[in-house]
Design a protein around this nucleic acid. Structure first.
Length: 415
RNA sequence: GUGGGUAUGGCGCAGGUGGUUAGCGCGCCAGAUUGUGGCUCUGGAGGCCGUGGGUUCGAGUCCCACUAUCCACCCCA
């Protein structure tokens, strides 16, 4: 048998209704915040992610699905959503629209890494990106979208953690200070961190190796290295969040795994799991070939969200409801049932009928299983008399109705 | 990439120290005096016991490899 590819999943039955609910809430919230949807391709030139996400990131170094097509183009299945949106923003000259541009997406995303609960190779990411604004209020607004969404989902005990990585200038200052600091203990670092030390010392900060942890514990904080403007920006973000009534804590250890972040970075954490993470990325657009453009956004894995919701609320098993089941007996009744069912469906009634010519008993069992409100059985005598018994399944109560008016009566009862 | 657990009909599981036709629960299908569900009873379908090697007269059961899956690490969403 040909089975599922590692790290992929079929979503159906109760699970798919849970997804639909979640997606509906996402779309609704975005609509109220004035954020429009964008659908970008799954494949992009590899170069976009190498430049956008950052060469030193784990994503680019070992987790991308990259291939060459028959035109010798080097392509990659998107490993995150932001780079594609940045590309689209530049490509379509969106900076000519009313600024800032506010976009969201819900899309399959791919990373070739080891699987675990709530972590697939093909996963689905919801993201919000606001491009064309450098303002601190924009950071706060984006954070407020995420906060509103998590609240709407009913996720318990969510904690917002924020930090600032500063602008490239602050960052380079900090890198220098950090490098000096770590350099003294270079020998004790894990092999990965030695490499990180050369390319991007910031990433040493979130290494979980014990040997590295000990060194990092006393490392200077990024926040101490922010210049006046960046400090002011970060302070303003905090002031607005406070004004909005959004609680947060400052965590100088948050660096995020993607290189494009500048200034504000944030994470929403529940039960020790990061449900949602994002930040400002003022250099990404330029990096991808556009004009310098401020931008801020966040992303969220739907699989992880579903997992957390299941854990907190229990499994969601919703069976699609049916209004009426049209049973039948004999050839003529069977034919009549097919026609009546379609009439009802066209009238917006959730109707179903027997299509496999089973016994009436079996049909009733089926009607019960699919959870129908009403049922009726059309046979020779019904066709002769022009009447039929309408049965309410829950109570078992039966009413005699006219067959010719059955359609109208059901429409009334079920609307 | 590293370490550990698991792998038996659609789902959940049982199958002491290897031995003949591989079981159970749920589900599915069909019956229980003629055309009506939910409870109960009866019957039926459905598995080359993850894949490939090996040990043996004989392996679901032991050994090895591979694959998948779960957990932890790593990283992130």
């Amino acid at each position: 048998m040909i089975q599922l590819v590692k790290g992929t999943k079929d979503i159906f039955a109760g699970e798919v209704t849970a997804w639909q609910e979640i997606e509906k809430k996402m779309r609704n919230i975005c609509q109220t915040f004035g954020i429009g949807e964008i659908r970008t391709p799954i494949i992009e030139f590899t170069e976009l992610f190498v430049r956008g996400v950052g060469e030193t990131t784990d994503i680019v170094q070992k987790e991308m699905y990259t291939f060459t097509d028959d035109g010798d183009r080097c392509l990659t299945l998107r490993p995150e959503g932001t780079a594609g949106v940045a590309r689209a923003y530049i490509e379509h000259g969106m900076h000519n629209q009313a600024q800032p541009t506010k976009l969201y997406y819900i899309s399959p995303t791919f990373r070739c890494e080891n699987t675990q609960a709530g972590r697939q190779r093909q996963f689905h990411q919801f993201g919000v990106e606001v491009l064309g604004s450098y303002s601190a209020a924009q950071d706060a607004e984006v954070i407020s979208v995420a906060a509103a969404l998590l609240e709407e989902m009913g996720i318990k005990d969510v904690e917002l953690r924020i930090n600032s990585l500063g602008c490239p200038q602050c960052r380079s200052n900090y890198n220098k200070i950090l490098r000096d600091f770590i350099g003294q203990n270079l020998g004790k670092l894990c092999p990965t961190c030695k490499e990180r030390f050369e390319k991007n010392p910031l990433r040493v900060l979130d290494c979980k190796e014990e040997s590295c942890q000990g060194i990092i514990a006393n490392a200077p904080s990024v926040l101490e290295c922010l210049n006046g403007e960046c400090m002011e920006h970060f302070q303003k973000v905090q002031d607005i969040l406070t004004e909005m009534g959004i609680a947060f804590t400052i965590d100088p250890k948050i660096v995020r795994g993607l290189d494009y972040y500048t200034r504000t970075v944030f994470e929403f954490v529940s039960d020790g799991l990061t449900v949602c993470g994002g930040g400002r990325y003022d250099n990404l657009i330029e990096e991808c070939g556009g004009k310098p453009t401020g931008a801020v956004g966040f992303g969220l894995g739907i699989e992880r969200l579903v997992m957390i919701l299941e854990k907190q609320k229990g499994e969601i098993t919703e069976v699609p409801q049916r209004d009426v089941f049209i049973g039948s007996m004999g050839e003529k009744g069977f034919l009549k049932a097919q026609g009546l069912t379609l009439d009802l469906r066209k009238a917006g009634i959730l109707a179903d009928c027997d299509t496999v010519e089973r016994s009436v008993k079996a049909q009733m069992k089926y009607a019960n299983k699919i959870g129908t409100k009403y049922s009726l059985v059309i046979g020779d005598s019904e066709l002769e008399n022009g009447t039929v018994e309408l049965k309410e399944m829950e109570t078992g109560e039966k009413t005699m109705i006219s067959l010719s008016e059955a359609s109208q009566i059901l429409v009334q009862k079920c609307k």
